[in-house]
Design a protein around this nucleic acid. Structure first.
Lengths: 366, 366
DNA sequence: GTGAAAGCGCTAACAA
DNA sequence: TTGTTAGCGCTTTCAC
């Protein structure tokens, strides 16, 4: 749509007043009375331009509302100045997952300060995910990617390395090699277990996420080891998939046990909330008969009945830190130390003291 | 970092086995024994290449794992082959809002079929939003943008036009000029009102979103007009901001009325769920004393106690349709007719028959 | 400290 | 039908 003057020579002014030619670095240079490279230098924070010229250049750019064209810049610097995020989620989890929007917001909070863009891709299967990364790499759309939902024996880091695509791994716990950046889920779970123990609970079950994910496994292991630490018998674990339906199902399964748990720790809030419903549906009172703990602290958690006791992570800061690290990596700098806020444990109404055996018997006899 | 052979002539094979040169269209052309333009033509679906040559080119590209570099392509075609989405949300709403992830997924579902990328920007204020659009435009990062949360007397369409940035408006209801693409919120609200009316309710209140948004206003007006249509007295409306806290506050305000409503329709599920809690906290039973209807059908809605009656929109399809329309626009084609699925009304346990005056009196007297 | 010129990898007009 | 060539707008080396 842009009208380019027919004469190939750079015209001083656009001939047509209607369809204006795109303003380029040349226009700014001309207006400031300097060369293109001078303008380039100023906009790339390099020395070699006098203070006075620099001022004129900035002024000209402002007047012309000019900014370096990202496409041209990307081409000549062989860098897209963009980062990629591939989100693989089952559709039914998408609108519920509190992680993704907050993480993106955190990433953006850093990227916008350094002029990077975030390119998003949402996929729903393994093949589509692989294809997405492959496209990012071959089309050179992005300079690096975030790898979320780290899996057990995950092949993606190696595949990305093969594509020459820098990445940061989002993972909980400590990994060897390329250390993942993550919040300390395990600490949150351990605090949950201790909280229940302090309330007198001894049969503490766990509804986990899919065991293929590192974060699921980390949470489950933290639960199991803390149980052992406190000298409690191993608890029952039911594997679910983070959906409300699965949380309800797992809860029923647990409560069907002849010796049901008096408390359940869920791998996320959605399952925990569905668990509350499931329990109440079968006449099990929360927290009177059953204490329930979630994970995430979704904004709805305080507005459930009873309000949900849960573990809160600062996903926004996590995203910010990951973005910071990835930009450092793609720019060839040493990523500085990463400081993430600790997880918080939020006690609300869904947990309470265990109802003693004696009390139960008396009640039954009465 | 790439080692470019010192000789400018296109070498047959990369000289260095370690740092391999990036593969370009020239390599593919050489391998297939054709010119670069032949390769370009094939990859842009243009005629002018013989079937046999075409086959060789595709084969060569496959062997070399080559795809057109998005940056170079963007520069020479003056098109980024990317679309932008600026999301402006208060942080506390981000992780709850069911719209954004689903919309993005829907957008992607179309974009990935046509090789467009989605560039995201999350901002939290008016100035930042303006700046984001300005950057998209001046840096030519994207070819068009989605404009969400259309506001009353919104200046953004005009600003975008001034920047020469194509856009599609996401809006409910019908607008004149550039027609927004949207689902029919109003129909959902009207069905909610009729549902309550059929259950005998006559005092039906509404907790709306901020009145600055077109969608808030559309929903409120649908509620008010349907009330009138049914011959009911005008109901009370309380303006809130889509958060749980605001929903709870609005609910208390409504129930404090000497003549409180017997049913409340909320502008989203979060506020409705918080409303249920607020009601129960003050001894008002749902749905026995108060019927509650939400909007969105978040995945948690069936797992609340009582399960939430609500209006469901197919945001995924909405996103898909918007993407389709925007791509048509930026490619200069006539956007085809847009067919969006109708909203659904989901009846669950949070609504029930109104408790008659008589019954209340009898109970009070008893 | 400044300017000229050669790319970055692709597309597209034009010539053969 | 095929190949040649001139950009797209910026960065960056290298003379001046």
């Amino acid at each position: 749509m842009n009208a380019t003057p027919p004469d190939g020579v750079g015209a001083d002014r656009p001939a047509s007043p209607v369809l204006q030619r795109k303003i380029t670095i040349g226009d700014v240079a001309a207006r400031a009375g300097v060369s293109k490279s001078a303008v380039s230098f100023v906009f790339n924070g390099r020395s070699g331009v006098g203070e006075e010229a620099r001022e004129r250049i900035l002024e000209a750019a402002r007047a012309l509302e000019w900014r370096p064209d990202a496409r041209a810049r990307a081409l000549s610097r062989s860098r897209a100045q963009a980062l990629g995020l591939v989100i693989r989620r089952a559709p039914e989890l998408l609108s519920t997952d509190p992680f993704f929007p907050q993480f993106v917001a955190g990433v953006e909070s850093f990227l916008s300060t350094v002029g990077y863009a975030l390119v998003l891709q949402v996929v729903d299967g393994e093949e589509a995910e692989r294809e997405a990364y492959s496209r990012f790499a071959h089309e050179a759309r992005v300079d690096g990617v975030f790898l979320t939902d780290l899996r057990v024996e995950d092949e993606r880091p190696a595949e990305l390395a093969g594509l020459g695509m820098p990445c940061v791994l989002l993972g909980s716990g400590t990994g060897e090699g390329t250390a993942p950046i993550g919040l300390d889920d395990a600490a949150g779970i351990r605090r949950a277990v201790r909280h229940l123990h302090a309330l007198g609970h001894e049969r503490i079950a766990h509804v986990s996420g899919s065991d293929r994910y590192v974060h699921s496994r980390v949470r489950r292991e933290a639960w199991a080891s803390e149980l052992a630490q406190l000298g409690l018998r191993p608890g029952t674990v039911v594997e679910a998939d983070f959906t409300g339906a699965a949380g309800a199902r797992a809860t029923h399964e647990l409560l069907d046990d002849p010796e049901p748990p008096t408390a359940i720790i869920y791998a996320n809030d959605i399952m925990a909330i569905a668990g509350i419903s499931a329990a109440i549906d079968r006449g099990v009172r929360v927290p009177h008969d059953l204490s329930i703990i979630g994970f995430d602290d979704i904004p709805l958690a305080p507005y459930i009945i009873p309000p949900l006791t849960t573990v809160r992570q600062d996903v926004f800061q996590w995203g910010n830190a990951c973005a910071r690290a990835l930009v450092s990596i793609v720019e060839g700098n040493e990523p500085g130390a990463i400081e993430l806020p600790p997880v918080e444990f939020i006690v609300r109404g869904s947990t309470g003291p265990v109802r003693g055996q004696g009390e139960a018997i008396i009640e039954a006899a009465g």
